[in-house]
Computed example of a mutant assay.
Amino acid sequence: MITAQMVKELREKTGAGMMDCKKALTECDGDMAKSIDWLREKGIAKAAKKSDRIAAEGLTRVAVEGNTGIVFEVNSETDFVAKNEQFLALLDTVRDVLLTEKPADLDAALACTVNGETVADIITTATATIGEKITLRRFAVVEKADDEFFGAYMHMGGKISALVVLKGKEDAKVAKDIAMQVASMNPQYVSRNDMPAEVVEHERKVQTEIVKNDEKLASKPEKVLAGIIEGKVSKNLKDSCLVEQEFFLNPDQKVGQYLKESGVEVPSFVRYAVGEGIEKREDNFAEEVMSQAFGK
């Protein structure tokens, strides 16, 4: 009889998925050593060896269903995996789980089950069969009100995904335009009102020091200097705010103007770019291949 404890032990030893471990134990009549060999022969046990690798490539996805919108990122080690059918199928699975289950955090998402198998197990199996470390890195579940609407855009097949919540006169073109703006211009906040006070204060201190060290400005009155500093602060922070950015379809117009003319405002947005914030390891690919081939 194959017990849950036996499956757990084999998983810990091989890094293989729950269903694969159960199948291995069944095939090998519960013999642990033979089960490990069975998984190795099938190429499944190698998943555990990938755990210390850096996964900074992959794809993002954005999807909308009713009043729910999601954005998520699944990472791999190389860009080649983005074309792998199993990897793309995994993205579809994660999308469906997030839309249906709306998990609160990453642990909850990984614990969600699909046909009796957890998302964590599905990812482990994909890691083993594809041959690269694969991780569900992050996701956002966004709920909108009935009087709001979504704008969604995916750039370069999923290298960047943006989800925008808009309020006002519903317009599909405006929704897509603003989602494209967020994807391409990478604002950090909707407006200065959403910007943390410490961010503004930090920029003010930087600009104050710059002005102090400018001999041409040193003789100007305090009030004039204060105005110059605030002007510099606004100029440097405007690109961080969506409504103050130049509209990508018309650089002579601010996004805020475009929104006002369209009778729309933006309560919030989410933007994910693949690998942002991950420190990528610079490897010599040729050396790595030689090392794997000849065990150097």
Results as ranks from 00 to 15, higher is better:
234 S>I: 00
230 E>P: 00
222 E>R: 08
246 E>F: 11
225 L>T: 10
257 Q>I: 03
288 E>F: 07
265 E>R: 09
233 V>A: 07
286 A>P: 06
258 Y>Q: 10
225 L>A: 04
221 P>K: 00
231 G>R: 01
280 K>W: 05
277 G>N: 09
227 G>W: 04
220 K>L: 13
224 V>D: 03
273 A>H: 11
248 F>A: 06
228 I>A: 02
221 P>A: 01
288 E>P: 06
273 A>P: 08
275 G>R: 07
248 F>H: 14
220 K>M: 11
233 V>D: 02
277 G>L: 10
263 G>K: 10
256 G>C: 11
220 K>V: 01
289 V>K: 11
271 R>E: 10
291 S>D: 14
281 R>W: 00
247 F>A: 11
234 S>P: 00
245 Q>M: 11
240 S>W: 00
237 L>H: 02
227 G>K: 13
280 K>Y: 03
255 V>N: 05
224 V>T: 14
224 V>F: 12
291 S>G: 15
254 K>T: 14
281 R>C: 00
246 E>S: 15
259 L>W: 03
254 K>P: 05
291 S>E: 14
232 K>Y: 03
276 E>D: 15
266 V>L: 04
256 G>Y: 07
278 I>M: 12
268 S>C: 09
260 K>R: 10
287 E>Y: 08
269 F>L: 10
248 F>T: 07
222 E>D: 12
282 E>V: 13
255 V>R: 04
271 R>S: 08
255 V>H: 04
268 S>Y: 08
264 V>I: 15
276 E>F: 02
268 S>N: 13
253 Q>H: 05
254 K>L: 13
277 G>M: 09
270 V>H: 11
265 E>W: 01
275 G>Y: 03
281 R>P: 02
284 N>K: 06
271 R>L: 09
231 G>H: 01
254 K>Y: 04
243 V>Y: 07
228 I>Q: 01
253 Q>G: 02
288 E>T: 12
225 L>M: 13
235 K>R: 11
280 K>L: 04
220 K>Y: 04
289 V>H: 06
278 I>H: 09
279 E>L: 08
280 K>R: 15
249 L>C: 03
258 Y>D: 04
285 F>D: 06
223 K>S: 11
278 I>W: 07
273 A>L: 06
279 E>S: 13
286 A>K: 07
262 S>D: 04
261 E>V: 02
270 V>N: 08
227 G>C: 03
263 G>W: 12
289 V>F: 11
269 F>R: 01
258 Y>N: 09
236 N>H: 13
253 Q>W: 09
287 E>C: 04
257 Q>V: 13
